[in-house]
């Protein structure tokens, strides 16, 4: 990890301690794994204990949860949604499909590795992962935020050219999201 990224002031440490207790999640549920989310939210596992709440629009969310396989068409939407989210933002790849294509490895229509298109904070392995695994990974994410290591969102600004190239390659052309990533990078001094 880059030195500059892990250096933090006292204020940032306190802020991380408080912010990690409130994570709002936007679940992008086109894959089959979404079925494991209701038990995670309701009485049995209750993720609201950790301050994790489902939210509706990208503007309000901190976590983008990608449950499972993404076709080229839905990946476009994921990129758009990701760019509309407000930093700091964390992507959680859910299920083996997001890691390496999973059982759709041979499919012509789905993409294989999510982190070639947007930076991913944590992955949850499994096909499909149990609620325990989801809760575990959220706790991992919380710990990571606390340690100040959950900085993947800065990666998007730093290595935008890389992500952009992969996106354009898959989409066979640029997509217009009306987000000026380069200008934002200057705003964040990244």
């Amino acid at each position: 990890m880059d030195e500059k990224l892990t250096q933090r002031s006292v204020w940032e440490k306190i802020a991380a301690k408080l912010s990690k207790r409130s994570l709002w999640m936007l679940h992008y549920c086109t894959g089959c794994g979404a079925i494991e989310l209701p038990p995670t939210m309701t009485a049995r596992f209750d993720m609201e204990r950790f301050g994790i709440n489902p939210m509706v629009t990208p503007r309000q969310a901190d976590i983008l949860l990608i449950t499972g396989y993404l076709s080229v068409k839905t990946l476009k939407r994921v990129v758009l949604t990701y760019e509309q989210m407000q930093a700091p933002k964390y992507v959680v790849g859910f299920g083996s499909c997001t890691i390496n294509g999973g059982m759709y490895w041979n499919s012509y229509a789905t993409m294989k590795s999510l982190d070639r298109y947007i930076p991913v904070e944590t992955y949850i392995a499994g096909c499909m992962p149990r609620p325990e695994a989801i809760i575990h990974s959220f706790n991992e994410l919380i710990a990571k935020i606390d340690r100040g290591e959950a900085n993947s969102w800065k990666d998007y600004y730093k290595n935008y050219d890389f992500y952009r190239k992969n996106q354009e390659h898959t989409f066979e052309g640029p997509i217009e999201t009306y987000n000026d990533i380069k200008a934002d990078a200057a705003l964040f001094r990244i």
Binding site: L18, R21, W24, Q86, A87, P88
Partner: peptide, 29 residues
């Protein structure tokens, strides 16, 4: 409401955390 739904529910100071987190966001469009 969490208790009515037989959940454990968030801590009672949860809304402070939420507000703090929102005020601490890096981008504001």
């Amino acid at each position: 409401i969490a208790r009515i739904e037989r959940r454990y529910g968030p801590p009672i100071q949860q809304v402070f955390y939420d507000i703090f987190k929102l005020m601490n966001k890096k981008t504001n469009i």
